[in-house]
Design a binder for these strands. Sequence first.
DNA 1: AGGGTTATATACTCTTTAGTACAATACAAC
DNA 2: GTTGTATTGTACTAAAGAGTATATAACCCT
Lengths: 204, 204
Amino acid sequence: MSAVSCTAAVGRPRAFDMQTALEKALDVFWTKGYDGASLSDLTSAMGINKPSLYSAFGNKEQLFLKAIEFYETRPCGFFKPALAQSTAYKVAEFMLLGAAQTMSDPSHPQGCVMVQGALACSEAAAGVKEVLIKRRQQSESDLRDRFELAKAQGDLSSDEDTEALSRYLCTVVNGIAIQASSGASEAQLVDVANMALKSFPRNS
Amino acid sequence: MSAVSCTAAVGRPRAFDMQTALEKALDVFWTKGYDGASLSDLTSAMGINKPSLYSAFGNKEQLFLKAIEFYETRPCGFFKPALAQSTAYKVAEFMLLGAAQTMSDPSHPQGCVMVQGALACSEAAAGVKEVLIKRRQQSESDLRDRFELAKAQGDLSSDEDTEALSRYLCTVVNGIAIQASSGASEAQLVDVANMALKSFPRNS
DNA sequence: AGGGTTATATACTCTTTAGTACAATACAAC
DNA sequence: GTTGTATTGTACTAAAGAGTATATAACCCT
């Protein structure tokens, strides 16, 4: 009954790997969205039965939240590496090209689960929709903070509107997500990314 | 049994207006998406019972298709007016600003039903998802055709890649749809539109 | 006024949905 | 080996899903 998920080796051991199961669940939500993903879809993709799912992850909503948490922190993400670039322009470049490449990558579902996981949805999904909106807004303000830093460091002109800049970038990234989920190729999305970059101020 | 929907005044007259009912249905699909919109949601919004819905519109899928058909052709759309602008740049400007205004308009659901109606969805919605993708791609190629015309008319340089240009614009418009459906204001979206316009070639 | 025709409301069908009860099972600790 | 604990598989529940049968009501035409 402890709140922390302790790995005490007591009782029958779990027969599946939670991390792999979570990845499978993520793929289902990514492809079908929260409303479109049924528990049957989830359990059959995860290779487990419903009681195992419920005991390990809570319920459908909590499973979704854990899945997108994993999505955000897994190594192949492009967002955090983008923020770590050395100049504002390089941040924007890394972000747009990273989005173009990652979202069309055929080794996982196309697009972005943070966008298509719950965009227009039932009341049952209203909670997760709000969470996704908040996360996207958080990304936007993280990006703005990075550009404020760039101003302080002198690689972004001080009269730039960092909020508008970050919103513009996130808008294009979201648009790229739509295109990718509609079947656009990496090459096509890289073109879009490069065209979007033309609007971005460079101080060279 | 005739295939054409003739308005023969025979039998009991319909007690509701099909057009208004269709608009109500559109609002539901727009807000909840295809998967998230239940028949109860639809019938209660339309103010009719299920048999009326089925006799008037076929089934859920056909109702959705008729709803988006109405969506595309209703007067408040911005796409066709954009194509009618006199120069390539004005087309782009009208398109982006029109998207920013229309999609944040509080007089109807925010965002774009062609995007959020069925983005990631169940197998039951796979058909309508494909239709939406095709419609969006059609818009993209209509825009490209318009830019090809602009080349011929001399208001767009002949070495521009019209396909990349139209894809870029549609990507930003789709991104604006996401932002609007997440609660962005018109002013914020107009900023995005103007920033996106900076990438667009002007021959002035 | 009566017959033909179509829409309406109620009540139903069958399937699928999310979530759970329970008995059997597999391990650690003693 | 027995006990305690936690997971597993099967079978279940109650609600909601899409779609329909049927009887009644409202209209036009003759």
